[in-house]
């Protein structure tokens, strides 16, 4: 097998596609925003030249589709030029969302691991719980999110916990499924070896099942952390648009601030990318400690 080169197999194709997408974006900006410019020109009774049209579509106040540089300018303006504690700072909103995400992700991962251990060790739990764990995910929890928030608010639990609960519910599922698979991944021959050592169930668990489930755990954690961010964002929608990236999206859509929506969207994307990357780094670090070949 030929060694993949970073430049030829990664950087070049990806950057080509990204540049292509940005180019499409600019073209789409012109097309989608042009009707508005033509309307204004027609109302003023003037004819608009194409060069002016091009320039204007890139710099509208409330464009149908903001140009990439407008979004980047907005992100720069709301992260670097505002104090972090200010309500207009995107960093402040991102932090609100991030804290709920991490809190929910933590509970969800712990719950998922516990459930998986129970399922692997108890047959009745396996048979009765597993179908419902799967069925629980066909319930569109995100649809229930507003109710959970409002109801918990009504009994006086507000702030971080309700949002975190939604993240928990979303993130426990991939962890359960992945961990059940992982804890069952040791082969019969290995389990038999532990048996010949007269190992107790606890020893078998800590020395064989737990280590061999690590790759599965981290793969599901990556999915879980991404999905708990989604949970936190949706959980912020019904709070009356107070704080957080979700509230930012909702406020933007109420007031037609498209640039603000796109900026929040990009911030959320960046957050998701960083979270998944951190889990990925932890993954490779743990595997390295366990002596896996790179």
């Amino acid at each position: 097998m030929r060694q993949d080169s970073f430049l030829k197999d990664k950087l070049l194709p990806i950057s080509t596609v990204v540049i292509l997408l940005i180019a499409i974006w600019y073209v789409a900006t012109v097309f989608l925003n042009a009707p508005f410019e033509r309307d204004t020109a027609a109302r003023a009774g003037t004819e608009i030249a194409f060069s002016d049209l091009l320039k204007n579509t890139m710099a509208q106040e409330r464009p149908v589709l903001p140009a990439p540089h407008q979004v980047i300018a907005e992100i720069w303006d709301t992260t670097a030029n505002k104090a972090i504690t200010s309500k207009r700072s995107l960093v402040y909103h991102a932090w609100i969302t991030l804290s709920a995400t991490l809190f929910g992700f933590g509970i969800g991962a712990a719950l998922g691991i516990l459930l998986a251990v129970g399922i692997v060790h108890n047959r009745a739990m396996d048979r009765s719980l597993m179908p419902w764990v799967i069925a629980s995910q066909t319930i569109p929890i995100l649809a229930i999110a507003p109710m959970i928030i409002v109801v918990l608010n009504a009994i006086g639990i507000a702030g971080l916990l309700p949002k975190a609960l939604i993240s928990t519910y979303l993130s426990f599922f991939p962890v359960v499924v992945g961990m059940v698979k992982g804890l069952r991944s040791p082969e019969t021959i290995q389990l038999d070896l532990m048996h010949t050592y007269n190992a107790s169930p606890a020893q078998t668990f800590w020395k064989l099942r737990w280590p061999s489930s690590m790759p599965y755990l981290f793969t599901s954690l990556k999915v879980a952390v991404a999905i708990s961010l989604v949970g936190a964002i949706v959980g912020e929608l019904p709070t009356g648009a107070v704080a957080g990236l979700g509230a930012r999206l909702l406020a933007g859509s109420y007031y037609g601030q498209t640039v603000q929506i796109w900026a929040a969207l990009f911030m959320a994307a960046a957050l998701a990318a960083v979270l998944v990357m951190i889990v990925g780094l932890a993954h490779s670090a743990v595997l390295k400690r366990m002596g896996a070949r790179p």
Partner: peptide, 17 residues
């Protein structure tokens, strides 16, 4: 990468369009 993103956030934009 996109699969890991909160794609649901495009909802307000789509509603506008």
């Amino acid at each position: 990468f996109v699969s890991a993103l909160p794609v649901i956030g495009v909802a307000p934009i789509m509603v506008m369009w």
